[in-house]
Amino acid sequence: MDETFVLRQRLKYEWRFFFTEGANATRVNYGRLRYQIGLDIPIKEDTESSWKIRPSFEWFFIRNPAEFERFSNERDFRLLAIKENKNDHELSFGFIREVYYGLNSEPQFGYLFLVAYSF
């Protein structure tokens, strides 16, 4: 890629714990692998901050998809607008389109909007 675009890849392993209380109290923990690939596209930059657009795809892999229906074989498309200040703080907002497969294997779609502040 030339210096205008940055190709981003991320491989992450997560250990997840779920605790629920009440009659059907559960204690579940499992690991999942995430792989994300996307681009950083700068759109505006000045001496104080820079703006970029970050489209990306992310895949989630877990060992036993049937157990955790909501998250099994999920695939996300994310589109974020990110403002990075020179003090390294970052404000981002955008949306996520999720595709995931329940126990009946029918694809389901979810849409989330997010605002994040990193520092």
Binding site: D88, E90, G110, Y111, L112, F113, L114, V115, A116, Y117, S118, F119
Partner: peptide, 20 residues
């Protein structure tokens, strides 16, 4: 504050997800 950690990631992050 913390800037980035050794992995090049921000150290603290606050995220608000909104669904229907």
């Amino acid at each position: 504050m913390s800037k980035k950690n050794y992995l090049g990631l921000k150290s603290c992050k606050i995220i608000i997800y909104m669904r229907n």
